[in-house]
Design a binder for these strands. Structure first.
Length: 118
RNA sequence: CGAGUUGACCAGACAAUCGCUGCCUGAUUCAUUUUUAAUGUUUUCAGGGGGAGGAAAGUCCGGGCUCCAAAGAGCAGGGUGCCAGAUAACGUCUGGGGGGCGAAAGCCUACGACAAGUGCAGCAGAGAGAAGACCGCCGAUGGCUAGUUCACUAGUACAGGUAAGGGUGAAAGGGUGCGGUAAGAGCGCACCGGGCCGCUGGCAACAGUUGGCAGCAGGGUAAACUCCACCCGGAGCAAGACCAAAUAGGGUUUCAUAUGGCGUGGCUCGCGUUGAAACCGGGUAGGUUGCUUGAGCCUUAGAGUGAUUUAAGGCCUAGACGAAUGAUUGUCCACGACAGAACCCGGCUUAUCGGUCAACUCACCAA
RNA sequence: GUCCUCAUAGUUUAACCGGAUAAAACUGCGGCCUCCUAAGCCGCUGCUCCAGGUUCGAGUCCUGGUGGGGACG
């Protein structure tokens, strides 16, 4: 049975968890995203978000981006391998609309899946 | 109906699918206790109902709350500034007064005191403060020159007089008119304006005055120092409290007593704390709590011009913590602005697509 | 989230107690000199972050805003 839930177990919660990703990452990117991933220790995928105030000024826009990333991750998580990832953004992303952001994310997921099969 | 003013309210709607969060109910799992059963910082599932704003923002004021001593005395420092009231409090609000703008409704207003003292005003200008003679006017009086009717007249502009006029400047020591004079001048008078004293109205700010007094007055600047009146202790939920890994900072008793060091705004006082020995146990990472029922909202009635307040009845309306309200699709319309709670309230300020309602003013038309 | 600070040529600093032309160095551009470059010399470049207010007068004083920098678990 496949559910599209997004619980606390699918997130990075503590600073130490974030550190483990930052210490040994492989990078993926697009024009407005940078994604760091490492192999997960158990069966869960974990997502962490790092959206700097410097990159996106307004709180409304930051929230919007976080929601879109989570939503996309939620819908695609079962296709991904068991990894821990941190999503970072580049400046200018707040000028994109929802459809453009979703397209970019889907591209990245495909890249990650392909890379992992090799 | 047109132009405008003020106040209040709303902040796309509906449906389907997939998700997030904590609350309630029921079931389930686990743990503990004395078996039936109860409890819960346990696990999972189902159902129900709730889930960002008018500014949540800037952090500009004011409170609550918490710790520092229970927040205390003095100095320093800061704030406010017409009057009265409202309030928990305010730099906010309400009403009133003065001043300004507008045809009106109405709007704006840091608006105490330069007659307590000190300071400032470049350049220009003669002079910038109880002033001043550059041009001008006069030259009565005194001087000089001339005349002769010799106790006078004319001229000169030397002494000097003069604040009317010109000119300088942001600003030049009441205004207009008449009299007056050598020319002038509140020098005198009339009116206007202002001052002091009184009276009347008002709680007061202030207003009025057909009353009296003195010709009239030292202008501006206090968002210059200052004076006067009133107010303010400091930090902040990363405050603080509790449970507690690693590591090694503490409490009690006795002794000691520098008036030092540290803790609290800047200082002084004051207060707390300290150094040694013995005994006993303590608390960073992390977690829990503080955390939402509150100066709360709605309705009705009373008091008040109003801000507001009193009473009765009803309601519970976000509490997250790597941070919840979303995404996709469809339909409709006026095609959706500014923008996201983080301890909580009262304000102010700033950003903002539009829409609805009420009251009032002016103009036009009709009666 | 809370608490502090700063803003002047392209950059780094000045400008007294508010007083009229906002000063200096480096850089940039144009010119002179030189066969060319460097050096040297001359000239140019400003809404004092923005908007109001106080004052006769504001870079300076007051109020509101904008933008940057920093500290605290």
């Amino acid at each position: 049975m496949v559910t599209n839930e997004f619980t606390r177990e699918s997130r990075l919660l503590t600073p130490s968890q974030f550190q483990s990703v930052f210490s040994n990452p492989s990078r993926f990117g697009s024009s407005h995203f940078t994604i760091l991933i490492t192999q997960s220790n158990d069966d869960n995928n974990r997502l962490g978000l790092a959206i700097a105030k410097k990159r996106v000024k307004l709180a409304v826009q930051r929230n919007r981006i976080k929601r879109l990333v989570r939503e996309s991750f939620r819908l695609n998580q079962h296709q991904l391998p068991h990894i821990e990832m941190v999503v970072m953004v580049k400046s200018g992303i707040d000028e994109l609309d929802n459809q453009q952001i979703n397209k970019q994310l889907e591209k990245i997921w495909r890249k990650i899946i392909q890379r992992h099969k090799k």
